[in-house]
């Protein structure tokens, strides 16, 4: 080995923004994350031109995977046109030459903040979730060394206790997002702050999911066909949000996860959270030929 053999020819920028050594490190950690589903793997988390906490973890995974043949969809709470989502999508496309899309069916990589799309993802698709807090035990054990020991011992009693206390105090589970879930029967992960509605979509899914926290410098993965079981008591079944009867005020579709829009008179109206599904439904209603994929929820019921 010499300096000359380690040096590469000069280039104005690295392809896909990240330099080659950052990508190699992420590749090694992504393989380990797949090999131990749900287990948090530390990584260096390089600087990207975006503040920590705005999706830098997801961005680094996407930039490692991307190539000119990729098609990228980025969503923020289900919407493709949020400032954060649009900026990330344009950035990825500019540094990689990858195609941009709003359509879940066309995307090869879907980077997402806090939602899983409603249309069922295929075996060749990758879901990259941006994770603010990857540690499900943080609320019950702030010391991360002790939390690591608890993961090693599969000691999740205090998480069960939290859920039990919610039942005793409020009569129902109050955990709305980031519902702790047991992956492959061994590690409890936080599925990032996706609503309870989206957690069943990760169980025995066809697609590969990466969950990456840039600020916390950890990533974990859920491979395809892997068990993801939300922690529930046997006499209190897992319940998703009661959105099955809500109707989107713009597209008219029902049975999907909705955004609640408060009205002046104190009531609420609702819009479908997966905005491109709503757009496609509107275009179809207007007579266009639009391809709407099979959805995870049909008639408001999960059916995968």
């Amino acid at each position: 080995m010499s300096l000359a053999s380690l040096t590469k020819p000069w280039a104005a920028t690295s392809y896909g923004f990240l330099d080659a050594s950052a990508k190699r490190e992420l590749r090694r950690k992504m393989l380990k994350a797949i090999a131990v589903p749900g287990c948090q793997m530390p990584y260096a988390s390089r600087e990207v031109p975006m503040a920590r906490g705005w999706g830098t973890g997801g961005l680094q995974v996407t930039l490692t995977l991307v190539n000119p043949a990729s098609t990228i969809k980025v969503i923020d709470q289900g919407a493709d046109d949020g400032v954060n989502a649009a900026s990330i999508r344009r950035f990825i496309s500019r540094v990689s030459g990858a195609g941009e899309t709003w359509d879940t069916l066309e995307a090869s990589i879907i980077q997402s903040r806090h939602r899983v799309p409603e249309e069922t993802m295929r075996e060749d698709q990758i879901l990259v979730l941006q994770v603010p807090n990857p540690e499900p035990l943080r609320g019950v054990e702030p010391n991360m060394s002790i939390a690591r020991q608890m993961h090693a011992d599969a000691d999740y009693g205090r998480l069960w206790l939290t859920l039990y206390e919610q039942l005793v105090r409020k009569g129902r589970i109050m955990q709305g997002a980031a519902y702790p879930s047991l992956v492959n029967g061994r590690h409890v992960m936080t599925p990032s702050p996706i609503p309870r509605w989206d957690v069943p979509k990760l169980n025995m899914a066809k697609h590969l999911t990466f969950l990456s926290a840039g600020r916390e410098k950890r990533l974990h993965a859920v491979p395809p066909y892997t068990k993801v079981e939300p922690l529930v008591f046997s006499d209190r079944p897992y319940r998703v949000e009661d959105h099955q009867d809500l109707v989107c005020r713009r597209s008219g579709i029902a049975g999907y996860f909705m955004n609640e829009i408060p009205q002046d008179d104190g009531s609420s109206s609702f819009e479908v959270s997966d905005s491109n599904l709503g757009i496609k439904a509107i275009r179809r209603a207007e007579g266009e030929t639009v391809d709407i994929g099979q959805t995870w929820y049909r008639g408001g019921e999960f059916s995968a």
Binding site: A11, Y15, K23, R24, L65, N67
Partner: peptide, 21 residues
């Protein structure tokens, strides 16, 4: 902005890793 194209090594590594992943 011009999009930098992946050089041969980058393209090889990307393809290999996709297969490994």
């Amino acid at each position: 902005l011009t999009i930098s194209q992946p050089d041969a090594a980058e393209a090889r590594c990307n393809t290999t890793f996709e297969a490994l992943m």
